[in-house]
């Protein structure tokens, strides 16, 4: 699917996650897949856990508030990250 700034995403059910040390670990227990998220990935995950449904634009603002990163870099990296999360069925797009 094509991700635009207004695309709204949420974490799927059927997963369990935890922060261990600096890493966020996520298990999709329906598919049996396991992931370790890095610091920014873990931050995005925590935003989605707290706010349930967020647009890509809102996620980008959240990251820019927390990390020193160029807006254009952030936009591209966030898009790639969300695409892989969608592919892995850890998040889903919602209306």
């Amino acid at each position: 699917m094509i991700i635009s700034p207004s695309t709204r995403v949420q974490i799927v059910s059927g997963q369990s996650s935890s922060v261990l040390g600096k890493e966020t670990i996520v298990l999709n227990y329906e598919l049996g897949n396991y992931y370790e998220l890095n610091e920014i990935g873990g931050f995005i995950w925590s935003l989605l856990q707290v706010n349930k449904i967020m647009s890509v634009q809102e996620l980008q603002e959240g990251i820019l508030n927390e990390f020193e990163v160029e807006e254009s870099v952030c936009h591209n990296e966030l898009k790639l990250f969300l695409e892989s999360m969608l592919n892995e069925k850890l998040i889903e797009a919602t209306a």
Partner: peptide, 18 residues
């Protein structure tokens, strides 16, 4: 270790790791 039983095992393991 499938579905909910995998979830349960994972969460217990997380508790131990913590």
């Amino acid at each position: 270790l499938r579905g909910g039983q995998l979830k349960d095992h994972f969460e217990k393991s997380v508790t131990i790791a913590q």
